[in-house]
Write a protein that binds this DNA or RNA. Structure first.
Lengths: 402, 402
DNA sequence: CTGTTAGCGCGTTCAT
DNA sequence: ATGAACGCGCTAACAG
């Protein structure tokens, strides 16, 4: 859409109509023939050096070359080893990762699927995955899928690359007609030796890195009560999303224990993104549901707080409040869930429950790379990897005592 | 480090003190041996189906199977085609991407290198890269490198995977002892058919997706002047970072035209991250350099604005100001550069210059996938892909007229 | 310890 | 139009 400003400057005005002298050359490897001696003038002009190039250059067999360049702990006479390494250096040899993968029937790559990298939550998780992976010498391919169908497509594409494992960190996909297919696809992948791990449990029969969602929700609920709030608006994610449901159950439960019933009109089912948080509150404010008055929630009393089950929703909600002339923190308290990095930078700083984003990513790759995925079919309980034993609620200024 | 909270908990709260029955066991997965005939009963039990499995199942040659499943526009009799496709479906065949890559001598993957995915700037760019790539059917592998040495390592790892191209979006690496090596490595990669594209020019002889940095800086400078500010503190990135230098030149130039000289003590060389913005301002405020008084900048007059050459620095600076009891927007104006998504959510909302993050990512992959990389050795000016012809400064509340 | 020889899964000529 | 055979770059048995 916004492509108007895009100015891919032209390249070679004068080259004009002249034929393209694309010597894409090579085409087929006339091979052997023109590769007279393998030394294309040392200029890295042609294709990258191969193992056999190195072997020839070093005057050894390709097997030997393989052994010194990659083969782990095999023994090779020192002089040969030296020659090989020098040759490799000289030819700037880099093993062809694909060929290796084909030969040994398995890559050293893990696939990561997220809904939206530009969301701080996923960005944090991804950062953890990528760093942990690279520390262990495995690469990660990343894909984004914004809806259920995309998700299935992406997963299919991923299994084609036969990664060591697939890590799925999607926020939600509901009404999931493709859910069944997804599960089947993943099960086939697993039965062929692949590992799949979810980040945040989605109720599918695979291991998942999970956190104390319900306990976190309860903690928020109690904090609300202790801080003197009685009339929260709750911003949840979609109903099909377990984490949201768990958090919701937690806060509602804690509230109930204190004798507080939340007004059904005060709970909005949205999605875990900033836009939804923003628009939901804009709309409620516009309808006069937030501040005391006729159409207000809680029988006209209005809301005294907004409990978002996700940080970005909370942040969107805060700016919506401001747009509506309501001062977050002063007029209405706000809480989030996740503790994304910029939760401290909004004003007032966001009170939220901390989630160890990058560590969640790390835990996922550790599981993928471990020998045993800890999955036990008949005991669903055994397939969860819990991080964050007790929830860590971070008190900041968006929910002052009142 | 922070691993203490990590509690790979058993699941059930009530399961109480029971011992952890970690049967890590398993060791190797056996297998391999049992592949007697390749046909593991059709059940997806064994290894994934291969092309020849499909061919056999369909009663055709592997070549034919290849043609219908992948081979573009070849002609195959309809009945055969049908049988093949059914067989593929039944066996849940997915082409082995690695084998394809080896066979045709080139993958359909591009590598992306960033400094930090969890930084909104890189997250935005990455999102653009990944989405654009997947629309074109190419996968992207991502790696992070926080410093110059890592960068070289990662690049080396990347070339091993022989991607179609390498996109580098690193913020900066200074005192770069490895810079020369990096360039050589990349040149070898290119001479072997690879494409490399930088996002934001770094002065290396490769195409780069760039934006109107200096013009943007000038726009900010002029806005400052027009809005009545005279005593800015400038938060730059590292000196070796061209984009920072360009932006800096722009604002200083515009200021100079208006007869404003910036106090040398008021410019801090940092890095483009939130922490640096935060700490720099904390420190200056602590030293009394910001508010009128003895040690203040501008001969004791203090600063009336903070010009951060990057959004996250600006955001860090704003919360630092608050910590120091200075109200951003009211006491001191603030501007950023980049327009990351959450620039609207800080308070006051950040005035900044817009950068089309995801489109920058997209442009990079388009260049990688295009036939001609537009690089012309002898005319450095010709190797840039400009986005955003005229800078778009977004007026918000952090820099009110005064 | 080193070199030979089979494959790995797939694309692609070359005959048929 | 279809199939047989070879090669991609590399690893892994197997000999020597």
């Amino acid at each position: 859409m916004v492509t108007e400003w895009m100015t891919t400057r032209a390249i070679d005005p004068d080259a004009g109509g002249n034929g393209r002298d694309n010597d894409r050359g090579s085409g087929r490897g006339g091979d052997a023939a023109d590769r007279s001696d393998g030394r294309a003038a040392g200029r890295g002009n042609g294709a990258p050096a191969t193992l056999s190039d190195v072997a020839r250059e070093a005057g050894v067999s390709i097997a030997t070359a393989s052994r010194v360049l990659n083969g782990g702990t095999r023994k090779v006479r020192d002089d040969l080893r030296g020659r090989v390494m020098q040759a490799a250096e000289r030819l700037n040899y880099h093993a062809n990762a694909y060929a290796q993968a084909v030969a040994k029937g398995g890559s050293s790559n893990i696939a990561l699927l997220v809904s939206d990298i530009s969301d701080p939550y996923f960005a944090g998780v991804s950062q953890g995955v990528v760093k942990a992976a690279s520390q262990r010498g495995v690469t990660v391919s990343i894909a984004v899928a914004s809806n259920g169908e995309d998700e299935l497509d992406r997963v299919r594409g991923m299994v084609a690359t036969r990664p060591r494992g697939i890590i799925i960190s999607e926020s939600e996909n509901v009404n999931d007609s493709s859910r069944q297919e997804l599960q089947e696809e993943l099960e086939r992948y697993r039965s062929s030796g692949g590992r799949v791990v979810f980040i945040l449990d989605r109720g599918l029969p695979f291991p998942a890195v999970d956190v104390a969602n319900e306990a976190g929700g309860r903690a928020i609920g109690r904090l609300l009560v202790e801080s003197g709030y009685r009339r929260p608006v709750i911003l949840k994610g979609n109903d099909g999303y377990r984490s949201s449901a768990q958090r919701y159950r937690g806060v509602v439960g804690a509230l109930a224990e204190a004798g507080i019933m939340v007004d059904p009109r005060a709970v909005v089912n949205g999605q875990f993104n900033r836009t939804k948080g923003f628009s939901a509150i804009m709309q409620m404010a516009g309808a006069g549901m937030l501040t005391p008055g006729e159409g207000a929630v809680y029988g006209g009393a209005g809301a005294d707080s907004i409990v978002a089950l996700n940080d970005v929703m909370a942040i969107g909600a805060m700016t919506a409040l401001r747009n509506a002339g309501i001062v977050p923190g002063r007029d209405i308290g706000v809480t989030g869930f996740g503790d994304i990095p910029y939760a401290v930078d909004v004003y007032p700083a966001l009170t939220t429950v901390h989630l160890p984003l990058t560590d969640m990513g790390r835990a996922a790759v550790e599981n993928v790379l471990s020998d045993d995925d800890g999955y036990v079919a008949d005991d669903p309980g055994r397939r969860l990897i819990f991080l964050q034993g007790r929830p860590d609620v971070i008190l900041r200024d968006s929910l002052p005592r009142r």
